[in-house]
Nucleic acid binder design. Structure first.
Length: 244
DNA sequence: AAATAAAACAACCGCCATGAG
DNA sequence: GCTCATGGCGGTTGTTTTATT
């Protein structure tokens, strides 16, 4: 028997968050942290359940969230990590700084999965990819703090990956199912190096700053092991003569 | 311009793991 | 050692947005 839904029973509010609710939640967390999600909404005066608050914070309001479309590199990393980890979205998210498990999960289900589907599905997509993410979520969090306005800015996101996006001039070709999923030789060494770096330093900094507890060491070690293995494999591909 | 279909996104639900009492 | 409360995760659904007809 599952636990009763926490929000409905108490007559708490559900559905989309308003900017005002966002502001209250962020202000409260900045001031008091989030040691107890259950108690948080009451303390903050939010008519929400703790679970809802937690989700909102983790997925959208955290200052270190990177918004905007996934770059090609990020998508490829997700695919590769998914091959290694399966549907362990949180583990995958831990390797992609600024991306949340929910976001990754959505991206996976909306286009990455399709990209990997066999060539049988050759119909061209009816829609072109979205130009940019809808700004509402950004504007929700943006006014809250200077930190957020920086980290949640769509433009800053694109600048983060400007180098990568510059190589995406032919992005349309990637969206075609006819396109074989081919990884540039130099890609994995870059992407995985980034992932390892961030796991070694950046991610821990980011997580530490916001009180998130790091995943179990064994899990991290496992993933790091595989990442390094892939890096080595990639290097071998790049310069086989070295390893021959 | 309106209707429709599809994609993208945001949020919720239910289960599981873990820690405190 | 057991029970309960809580946090966290993955799956799923509902809503909104956008492209196409």
């Amino acid at each position: 028997m599952g636990r009763a839904p926490c929000c409905e029973k108490m007559g708490l509010k559900r559905g989309p968050w308003t900017p005002e609710e966002d502001r209250i939640l962020v202000a409260h967390i900045e001031r008091h942290g989030h040691s107890n999600w259950r108690a948080l909404p009451k303390q903050a005066g939010l008519p929400r359940c703790g679970k809802s608050c937690r989700l909102r914070w983790i997925n959208y309001l955290r200052p270190d969230i990177k918004r905007g479309n996934f770059t090609r590199e990020e998508e490829d990393a997700v695919i590769q990590l998914h091959q290694m980890l399966g549907n362990r979205w949180s583990a995958i998210a831990a390797r992609l700084p600024g991306r949340t498990d929910n976001e990754i999960k959505n991206v996976w289900h909306t286009h990455l999965k399709k990209r990997l589907e066999p060539k049988t599905a050759t119909q061209a997509p009816k829609r072109k990819p979205k130009k940019q993410q809808q700004p509402e979520a950004v504007t929700l969090a943006a006014p809250v703090s200077p930190e957020q306005s920086v980290s949640t800015s769509t433009t800053s996101t694109t600048t983060d990956y400007s180098a990568a996006s510059s190589s995406l001039e032919n992005a349309d070709s990637f969206t075609s199912e006819e396109e074989d999923y081919q990884i540039d030789d130099s890609f994995w060494s870059e992407t995985l190096a980034m992932a390892v770096d961030s796991s070694d330093s950046g991610m821990e900094e980011a997580e530490g700053a916001f009180g998130a507890s790091p995943p179990a060491p064994s899990t991290n070690d496992d993933v790091d092991f595989w990442l390094k293995l892939f890096m080595q494999a990639s290097d071998m591909q790049n310069s086989p003569q070295i390893y021959a």
